[in-house]
Design a protein around this nucleic acid. Structure first.
Length: 811
RNA sequence: GCCGAAGUGGCGGAAUGGCAGACGCGGCGGUCUCAAAAACCGUUGAGGGGUAACUCUCGUGCCGGUUCGAAUCCGGCCUUCGGCACCA
């Protein structure tokens, strides 16, 4: 009997040796083809739960497999280290965000090392270190230089008592979570990135292999719609503008307009409102401000609004159209105003009903009786009450009306997008300071590269209001203008953490390079990323931001590709108690316990065996002992003395070995790890039987065990390495080639032919693989178990699927 | 409301037009043991018939369709999960 399998000592022993030997060190100048396997780096929340392992283990297995297939694999790891939780910890517990974050990193790095991954820790990237955020800031100045970053007004949640911006989560029932003052919507000066400039390109996912649903989510988020901008004539005392322009996708309904609806924030509102409506309008606007954006946009909320007292003219029919303001109109979409056609739009319909505004039909439903509509009719139909367009199908009318408007100069076809510019400034401490200087003479000036990074001051006075301590740090604020040398003030906002994660995968390529954000040679070598794995929750945040960022720096000539991630794979989520794991819910499952109990390999294999990787599921450890048992069996199987009693079983053993190599290779290529592990189990079960009977020669036995170990190496790296060494093979198993299979050896000379009658299984016979169709059909009808089902029936057809089955169809 | 994914034994799941339930957990029976645990071996979808080897019927959320043949393809519905949600 071989020595017992002891996972604990093996984990430590090999992790130490691999580190000492720099086994997983990645070099750029390596003749092998490159493979960049990226996995989303963790946020430094404190500790990794089992869900993180579910993300990282299969990614590591896949990367290890590629390594064994002869690729020079870059599979790096780092930490997304800037963000709000660090600052909240500071406010709550008086611990400095930097201390909190770096402690968390130490713990998480320890955990990550216990997985036994192939991370090259020399390439670790931490976004909150000055050597990293220097370049995050540098990128920001580049974006500013290229007019992709700008300072402008954006609506935010504002607490007037605390004098602070609140995140949506910090607003409870319209009140500040700290002081319970009424929260107000306010337009504040913010920094934004012009992601909208890339809207069209972001909708296209050409040449990249991404999950369909992520592509759909991104396209919906960008939300491109084709429509027409229509000018309504305006003649209002004291207003210089002679028109109101609106965007519509339904110009065919323009003859049914019975009111205009402007967003409360629309710039014309104040000037259009007549004196007798002023009080009402102002009260309404004030009330709107009390809603958060989320509440205001809720479909639950009843649509309401007020009349301004002003009118404009529908140029197509000369009708006078009352101008209302309504909070269902968004100031940030289209032109901030809509032409309301209540008969053919659900929202306008509800509004018109409430305020008794007429609802004339201009698109006739198929069997319309001329009566008033009960609900808005939004489907296509025939145009009616629309002057020269009457009788035209509405789909055609869209174009016809648009062309007419263009001819008259009353409108033009255009496109509109749902996506907004990316609000990137945060009134917070724990982020990269936005490297901008406000000079009273020169205006906004970027901090030049030589003065970067703009260091985050260490001493910080954290206020219970959640305000950025930077705002009150005189030493930080006061500076000189890089252009005129005069006194100036620093920007005190910091950058959104998502800006840091836009380029971390570039930094991995040359993490210690100090002349630029990255060494262009290294990035040219490694990028784009061959496979990116991570959660789908980033579909319209990180993944969209990053695509924008890369396209932007491509256009600056910094990189020569526009899509950073060639293939994207979203793993599923491990849940506990039917919900996502999170500290606040207290349902996090700590992997450390399992690792110290059962060893990393068991936990690795178990996570992969749970089910399809993209599916995730409820965490349940009831089966993990089975995985432990299996690895034990493999240990004994490989290390116990094998005594052969002949070579009669060689043929079958060789065949099963090659079949398994084929199956396992195909599964790992497709990231089907659960069936890959199952195939390895089946194979080892079979080897157990061979060992029992001694039916194969020692030579074939050894070859098969070797193949099993090589295929097991990515999944159970410690166990495989130990057995490999004990069997006397050369260190390290992880530098070996993945086994190949010979297709001809996977085939059998005899096959099992399935015989069906009317599609129902009736018999199985073993026949030579070379059997002809005629023979097979004849044989099938001759079977004793088949005959009774043919008796008294007429055979109408016989289907033969070569190598598989015969189906006799009877009547 | 709209978009997307998924529904298979007691449980996780396998099979994506051809033997439903691979592999594992759990259960049951056994070996070992004074006994138990561990380990190992056998068995395990439901229902029926047979002393038995065995054998038949039903069965992949529900209803219908296509096909020689459907878990798999098509249409309709139900349920669960994820995303978006007044975008004119």
């Amino acid at each position: 009997m071989a020595e017992k399998y002891d996972s604990k000592t093996l984990d430590k022993k090999w992790q130490q040796k691999w580190a000492d030997d720099k086994l997983y060190e990645v070099k750029d100048n390596d003749p092998r083809p490159k493979w960049y396997a990226l996995t989303m780096f963790p946020y430094t929340s404190g500790d990794l739960h089992i869900g993180h392992w579910y993300n990282y283990v299969p990614a590591d297995v896949s990367a290890r497999y590629k390594r064994m297939r002869g690729f020079n694999v870059l599979h790096p790891m780092g930490f997304d280290a800037f963000g709000l939780p660090a600052e909240n910890a500071a406010i709550k517990r008086g611990i400095h965000p930097n201390t909190w974050t770096m402690q968390n990193i130490d713990n998480m790095r320890r955990q990550l090392k216990s997985i036994g991954g192939i991370y090259d820790w020399n390439r670790e990237v931490i976004t909150c270190l000055p050597e990293y955020y220097k370049w995050t800031q540098w990128f920001f100045t580049k974006l500013f230089e290229h007019d992709l970053a700008y300072h402008g007004k954006a609506p935010v949640n504002w607490c007037p008592k605390c004098q602070v911006v609140l995140a949506n989560e910090q607003v409870e029932n319209g009140k500040c979570w700290r002081c319970e003052s009424e929260v107000v919507r306010r337009d504040l000066e913010q920094w934004l990135l012009r992601i909208t400039r890339y809207a069209d390109e972001l909708m296209v996912h050409e040449g990249i292999d991404w999950p369909e649903r992520i592509k759909i989510m991104q396209r919906n988020w960008v939300g491109k719609s084709y429509g027409t901008e229509i000018s309504f004539a305006l003649d209002h005392p004291g207003v210089t503008e002679k028109e109101i322009r609106i965007f519509t996708t339904r110009p065919d309904t323009v003859y049914g307009v019975t009111f205009m609806a402007l967003a409360p924030e629309h710039p014309l509102v104040a000037r259009l409102t007549t004196p007798e409506h002023k009080a009402e309008v102002e009260a309404y606007i004030a009330r709107c401000r009390q809603f958060t954006e989320i509440e205001r946009l809720s479909t639950e909320k009843e649509k309401d609004g007020v009349f301004t007292g002003a009118y404009c003219i529908n140029r197509l029919n000369g009708k006078k159209v009352p101008i209302w303001i309504a909070d269902y109109v968004l100031s940030s979409y289209g032109t901030g105003g809509v032409m309301a056609v209540p008969a053919h739009d659900e929202r306008d319909f509800a509004f018109a009903k409430k305020y008794n505004i007429p609802i004339p039909v201009v698109i006739s439903p198929p069997d319309w009786d001329g009566k008033e509509l009960e609900v808005a009719y939004i489907e296509p139909g025939k145009m009616v009450n629309s002057a020269q367009f009457n009788g035209l199908p509405s789909e055609k009318g869209i174009e016809a009306v648009s062309i007419y408007l263009e001819e008259k100069g009353w409108g033009k076809r255009t496109v509109s997008y749902k996506i907004r510019d990316w609000l990137i400034s945060r009134q917070r401490y724990w982020g990269p300071p936005i490297p901008m200087i406000h000079c009273p003479k020169c205006g906004i000036v970027a901090v030049p590269e030589k003065d970067l990074p703009v260091m985050l001051p260490e001493t910080a006075d954290f206020r219970p209001t959640g305000e950025s301590p930077l705002k009150y740090n005189e030493k930080f604020i006061n500076t000189t203008c890089p252009r005129c040398g005069g006194p100036a003030k620093r920007e005190t906002d910091t950058l959104d953490g998502f800006m840091c994660s836009c380029w971390y995968f570039l930094r991995y390529c040359s993490p210690h390079y100090d002349k630029a954000a990255f060494d262009p040679k290294a990035v040219k070598h490694w990028l784009p990323v061959d496979i990116y794995t991570g959660g789908a929750e980033h579909a319209v945040m990180h993944l969209l931001y990053t695509r924008f960022f890369i396209k932007a720096i491509r256009d600056m000539g910094l990189v020569d590709f526009g899509e950073p991630f060639t293939k994207l794979f979203n793993q599923g989520i491990i849940i506990a108690d039917h919900q996502k794991m999170s500290k606040s819910k207290g349902n996090v499952v700590n992997p450390d316990v399992y690792v110290s109990d059962l060893g990393a390999d068991t936990v690795r294999a178990y996570l992969m065996f749970l089910g399809p990787w993209d599916q995730g599921g409820e965490w349940d450890d009831s089966g993990i002992s089975g995985m432990s048992r299996w690895l034990n069996r493999v240990w004994n199987l490989a290390l116990d003395e094998y005594s052969s009693k002949g070579s009669g079983g060689d043929e079958e053993l060789v065949r099963l070995t090659h079949q398994t190599i084929k199956k396992v290779t195909e599964d790992v290529e497709r990231l089907h790890f659960n069936t890959m592990v199952a195939a390895l189990m089946e194979f080892s079960n079979y080897l157990g039987k061979v060992k029992e009977s001694g039916s194969a020669s020692v030579k074939e036995w050894k070859t098969s065990v070797k193949a099993l170990l090589l295929m097991l190496a990515p999944t159970a790296p410690h166990l495989a390495e130990e057995i490999w060494q004990k069997l006397g093979y050369a260190y390290s198993i992880h530098n070996q080639r993945w086994p190949d299979w010979d297709e001809s050896l996977t085939k059998t000379e005899e096959i099992t032919l399935v015989i069906q009658v009317n599609g129902k299984l009736r018999e199985r016979v073993t026949v030579p693989a070379s059997i002809s169709a005629e023979e097979a059909k004849k044989l099938a009808a001759d079977q004793d178990k088949v005959k009774p089902f043919l008796e008294g029936k007429q055979v109408v057809n016989i289907i033969y699927v070569p190598g598989k089955l015969v189906n006799i169809v009877v009547k």
